[in-house]
């Protein structure tokens, strides 16, 4: 029950409350670049969701078994060459970024080959943005969040109330990635719908294109702020007896959020 609850909270958090685009402002490049038409935006959302899931799965595996301090595989291999104590002290987390970029780039390559083979029209309309998924910071962001939760065993952060205290398994990592991708898709499809409408609007010349898109993104981010705190309250409602285990840091940040944002009225 607790396990399923943590997955549920990570899922809601990644898709709505801490939407990658509208809360952390990562992945803005395709969000602005490919949101001109709804079908293209949906395609881009699906591509990003796919890449983010593959990358998250691989990076969790690498982090857990090889990269984190005293990872089992590294320890075992190093055990052939050096004393067990020295092998246990090996810390490869310095390689994190290189490995993640490598993983992301190869999964983007996979998607690119698939899209070019099976839907050439979409391949053409994506243009440079398809290989640019490699540099989509939403994906690297997901990998880094996963890294944080694998090696340091949770900590604070916005998923802290969900998975606080325990280090994430593959299921949590995959949930974060898939629902983060879904959140990205939701945001980009909404944006594409709005931008199709904006084509008929008499927007001031300096704001046309990226300008008005960023303004809309800002208003969307304001609207999504309404979801603040849904995860903590949901957790309290579903499992009230867990309240005592909420760590001091997450509790402190939550009360701060309530006092700072607890407006009345609308």
């Amino acid at each position: 029950m607790d396990y399923i609850l943590s997955l549920l909270l990570i899922a809601i958090g990644a898709a709505l409350i801490n939407n990658f685009v509208l809360k952390y402002f990562v992945g803005i490049c395709p969000f602005i670049g490919v949101s001109r038409r709804v079908d293209m935006a949906f395609g881009m959302g699906c591509a990003v969701t796919f890449v983010i899931s593959i990358a998250a799965m691989l990076s969790w595996t690498f982090t857990n078994f090889i990269l984190q301090p005293s990872a089992p595989l590294t320890k075992w291999i190093a055990g052939f060459f050096m004393s067990p104590e020295a092998a246990a002290n090996i810390d490869l987390s310095i390689l994190n970024y290189i490995v993640y970029i490598f993983v992301i780039a190869s999964s983007v390559q996979l998607v690119e080959m698939y899209v070019r083979k099976f839907s050439p029209g979409m391949y053409k309309s994506f243009g440079v943005y398809l290989p640019l998924i490699t540099t989509n910071c939403a994906i690297l962001f997901a990998c880094l969040e996963i890294m944080k939760h694998v090696s340091t065993g949770g900590g604070s952060g916005d998923w802290g109330s969900a998975g606080g205290g325990q280090s994430w398994g593959l299921a949590q990592a995959l949930t974060l990635a898939v629902f983060g991708g879904i959140g990205f898709t939701i945001a980009i499809v909404i944006m594409a719908g709005i931008r199709e409408e904006l084509d008929h609007c008499d927007i001031p010349a300096p704001l046309r294109g990226a300008g008005i898109t960023l303004i809309v993104a800002g208003i969307l981010a304001l609207a999504f702020m309404g979801f603040t705190g849904v995860d903590t309250k949901l957790k309290r409602k579903i499992a009230p007896e867990r309240e005592t285990t909420i760590t001091a840091s997450s509790h402190g940040s939550e009360t701060h959020a309530t006092s700072a944002t607890g407006g009345s009225g609308q």
Binding site: I190, L220, L234, Q266
Partner: peptide
């Protein structure tokens, strides 16, 4: 939002969120 979010009221956010999906 009323029952789950940190804000006591959610009409403003609800209107803005639904305005965003009106084109869709």
């Amino acid at each position: 939002l009323r029952s789950l979010s940190a804000y006591p009221e959610g009409v403003m956010f609800a209107v803005l969120l639904m305005n965003a999906v009106v084109p869709l």
